[in-house]
Design a protein around this nucleic acid. Structure first.
Lengths: 168, 168
DNA sequence: TGTTATTCGGACAATTAATATCCGATTTAA
DNA sequence: TTAAATCGGATATTAATTGTCCGAATAACA
């Protein structure tokens, strides 16, 4: 039971995109280079975010990604679900219906208590992630832990971003 | 991000062991047959439970497994941790230290906020599972959803169990 | 308006983890 | 003492994750 690295990368990339000025984007290659991760695989995560409506993409020259909605409206659960999927982590295979004392399907309308307990726990997990927005995470960049870090990030962004096309 | 089937099997097996009379055990093969799952793989899960101190094993003829402590003292988290491990689900690879604006290791004593947020969520998940004991799950067997189910289970147990050795 | 450079998007391998299996080590009953 | 029975760890097989590649689409530029 491990969460994909893609979630970590997507989260960091999304935090970076908070700081994008209006009308600018970051291409996948730049985001990958910034974090020193494989370009194509980072691109794959961004595609997932795009499908989920978290970021919007612009193709062609001077294209790139930017957040599709305000950072306060994007939670860590949104990003996790976009990469890992919305499905349950615990998969009940209904083995109570198997074997010599197996229950009939008709008697299994209610989920078994083991599955129910996991469902409750997963809900707690999701609800916790839903309380954390990208805006909250952005604080860690603003509270740069060393002097000059914030300006370094700003300079890097300026050097990597180009005005996007006017087309939405 | 999926929880291993082994957790489901181990949980069902543990619930079954609640009903074992004093001084009796169930062998791995019987537990596997009862749930119609591969014997050797079920055995593997039971070994993990044994290592974790949740069940105790008796080898040799008339051997088998039984719970190592009261059902009220075994939680669903204990079983999950025994199979899946205690480690965190979200693995922070510290990519904030990478790239052109990477932070120095010295400036990263505090965990990054993304990792912190997942740690909080995971704690909520674990705490939820910790509130569910085997005794709670045993209720689903007692409240058998069809008439005669409970006696069927009892008869099966009687037919499969033999007195264990006196040695602990 | 055509051409070209650039970027995203989905299809395709390689690697790692989960699943399933087998055989030896150990213990107990007879 | 013997032999049957059971657990325990080492060993294949399958699925999922991770990583890569090339075509489709778009916008800039001449």
């Amino acid at each position: 039971m491990q969460i994909s690295k893609g979630v970590e990368w997507a989260a960091h990339a999304a935090v970076m995109m908070i700081a994008l000025p209006e009308g600018r984007g970051l291409k996948a290659e730049a985001l990958a280079r910034y974090h020193e991760v494989p370009t194509a695989y980072m691109a794959k995560q961004l595609q997932a975010l795009s499908k989920a409506g978290i970021v919007q993409s612009s193709r062609g020259a001077h294209g790139g990604y930017r957040l599709a909605r305000p950072a306060t409206d994007i939670t860590l659960w949104d990003i996790t679900a976009a990469i890992e999927g919305h499905g349950p982590v615990f998969r009940c295979t209904e083995i109570r219906q198997n074997g010599p004392c197996g229950l009939k399907r008709k008697d299994c309308k209610n989920p078994c208590q083991i599955a129910s307990a996991f469902a409750v726990a997963e809900r707690a997990f999701r609800d916790s992630l839903k309380t954390v927005t990208l805006a909250d995470l952005g604080m860690q960049v603003l509270q740069g832990s060393r002097p000059g870090h914030l300006s370094d990030v700003g300079n890097w962004l300026d050097s990597e971003t180009m005005p996007l096309s006017d087309k939405t």
